[in-house]
Write a protein that binds this DNA or RNA. Structure first.
Lengths: 378, 378
DNA sequence: GTTCAATCTGAATCGCCTT
DNA sequence: GAAGGCGATTCAGATTGAA
């Protein structure tokens, strides 16, 4: 399990009545996305990943704000009407997604400059709280053949929680590990989907905008836990489902085109779940059992009377029997509190601030905690 | 100068009546931006560059892990009560900009995820035609100190013409030359503004959000011709004016805060017009990109569950989903950290230490990285 | 003068738990 | 709900100061 900032809350009684067991897990619903979403229970999925249509004509289909179909699409739609129709459609499915998401769930939406500004505005207007926008830098974008603009070499993703104060999942430590011990940034580079990964039929691509699995891999690894449920209302050829299965997550897909559905089913059936030990990811300290400094003193890892200093030996304190510290100036407190007090800092992590001497060297007392954890954890 | 796609049109008779000679060229108008824009004639400038307030909506105080305080943007000019208020402000100045622009002029607006979606929606609704969105990747962004999100490492710019069919200026050849004979892409990397370029007074920054000159340099070089007029309605400390002067463009700035105006005047007075031969030296060398081990896992170069060993097969580890390694003894870590831990060494280059077996032979995983680079680099 | 180490800082929507 | 304790959390580049 990766670090998660959330701890599962007991499901509200009202939600239980909705019979979450009835969720169509690991299935594709062949239906219009808004209609199918309406049939799903409130507060039931952990993440929504959406790759909505980018084009403003919606492939000839338009929706009213209530989600119903607009039958007649004429060529005379002026720009305002076209944007208005796209906005209505966007707000309709985003509102359903908001209802279906658990309170601590998050949503991801991908788009290009044609639609992402409208999506982002709708996301904010519907009460979602944007956490990041992410740039997918394409390693091998299509050049601008006519030389009239900059090569359009990226797409944009929006990551948002349901509410400002939500305790969303973010596997910080996993992301940092994945990026060679540097914080994962908001700009990601992947090749576009091609090669054996690209689904083809009779030599032509099955779907015009198939997304690379690497993109979904990073998203699901970063923001879900094993067993979490991911809903993709624009399932296409099932990249979300294939990666979810590989990573031990549950998925629900909605897709109207039966051609895509058939390709997605075949693809997901062939996907192999990762072995459980491979699925394990870097843990955050917060996932480890808590160890108080007093425990170490009680168990003889440090003796009352032992001397601690900071790394530069500017401050010197003595360990007392109850795990509190005594400074030379008479101040006392916990390892954290006294570290903060002496430095006149607002806060301090005593585990890494205080050191003890052994073998002529200074070691942070956190190494004692790690030793204790190794000795006592199964 | 680079090739330009436009040929100047004869000025319309009506516009001549507006006496364009009265444009306050190379001056700062000390005024509210919308009021000052109302006083400018229609169809009179070639470009608008705008760096409007981002409406950050920051919470409480933020401290770095070392306890130091983060100097946030707390200025009154960035505060708006609601999205509706911000939208109204945005649409008002964007509408004035549309009026003031020549028919073949273009507009640039910069923002972050806090405001850019609302700006982009307004741009489209007002009839502008988006040509590109550009990502400014910051070489040295501020980290996410609490480990709660991805490092916010970029800002977004929107480039738009006044109308869909406009014959805007794009110096394609200049951009290609500037980018080592490859088409300029939509993702640009620059450091944030610092060092001697950052304006300071009494040791503190004059403006909280001063933009790097390199950014304006590329924009003006790409999308204006010498002698063109650039309007910046949020002039701040005058980056636009300084770069315009350097590149032989005319400029008009609007700024309300007299402190910023004074700094901008002094700065622009000191700016020297650039000799054209100096342009070649402004090119930044292409640097070999960093590749994380996680990238290789995400892209299938190594599968989670794969086994790695050192060259002498003394240590044996398994690759996990996030690019971390799991040793037989239960220890985990990145390729570098775990290599160091197992050898009890202070540090280790995991790329050359760990090997995978292929064709009965051991190969350092660095060869996979090289393969990846060959496959993804132009 | 030169080099290296320590310090400072940048458009940031930056906890969680118990009492 | 508010308050307070615990303890987790940073990267690149410029500047300063010591050696």
């Amino acid at each position: 399990m990766g670090l998660t900032k959330t701890i599962a809350r007991p499901r509200a009684a009202a939600a239980s009545v909705q019979a979450p067991a009835a969720l169509p897990l690991d299935q594709i619903l062949i239906a219009d996305c808004i209609a199918a979403m309406r049939a799903l229970p409130a507060r039931s999925v952990d993440m929504v990943f959406a790759d909505p249509p980018y084009n403003l004509q919606l492939g000839g289909e338009l929706f009213r704000p209530d989600g119903s179909h607009v039958d007649a699409v004429t060529d005379e739609w002026d720009k305002f009407d076209t944007f208005a129709a796209y906005d209505a459609f966007t707000r309709a499915w985003l509102a359903e997604a908001h209802r279906i998401l658990k309170d601590d769930g998050t949503i991801w939406v991908i788009g290009s400059y044609h639609n992402i500004f409208r999506v982002g505005t709708a996301v904010q207007d519907l009460g979602y709280w944007i956490l990041n926008d992410i740039v997918w830098r394409k390693a091998n974008p299509m050049p601008n053949f006519r030389g009239t603009r900059f090569t359009n070499a990226h797409e944009t993703l929006i990551w948002a929680s349901k509410h400002e104060k939500a305790k969303y999942t973010f596997n910080y430590r996993s992301m940092k590990t994945l990026n060679d011990e540097l914080q994962m940034r908001s700009d990601w580079e992947f090749p576009i989907c091609g090669g054996p990964e690209r689904l083809k039929k009779d030599g032509t691509k099955v779907h015009p905008t198939q997304k690379p699995e690497a993109l979904l891999y990073r998203i699901l690894l970063a923001c879900t836990k094993p067993g979490d449920v991911v809903l993709d209302p624009f399932f296409g050829t099932g990249t979300t489902g294939a990666v979810a299965k590989r990573l031990g997550r549950r998925w629900i897909g909605i897709e109207r085109e039966t051609g895509y559905v058939a390709a997605a089913r075949e693809r997901i059936a062939a996907a192999l779940p990762l072995d459980e030990s491979a699925l394990a990811t870097m843990q955050s300290p917060r996932q480890q059992p808590r160890v108080s400094f007093g425990t170490l003193v009680e168990n003889g890892y440090l003796t009352p009377g032992a001397v601690l200093t900071d790394a530069k030996r500017r401050f010197r304190v003595t360990v007392r029997a109850d795990g509190s510290l005594l400074a030379d100036g008479g101040e006392t407190g916990s390892i954290h509190k006294l570290g903060a007090t002496l430095q006149e800092a607002p806060a301090c992590n005593g585990w890494t601030f205080w050191h003890h001497e052994a073998g002529g060297k200074l070691h942070p007392i956190d190494t004692l905690r790690q030793t204790w954890l190794l000795a006592t954890q199964p």
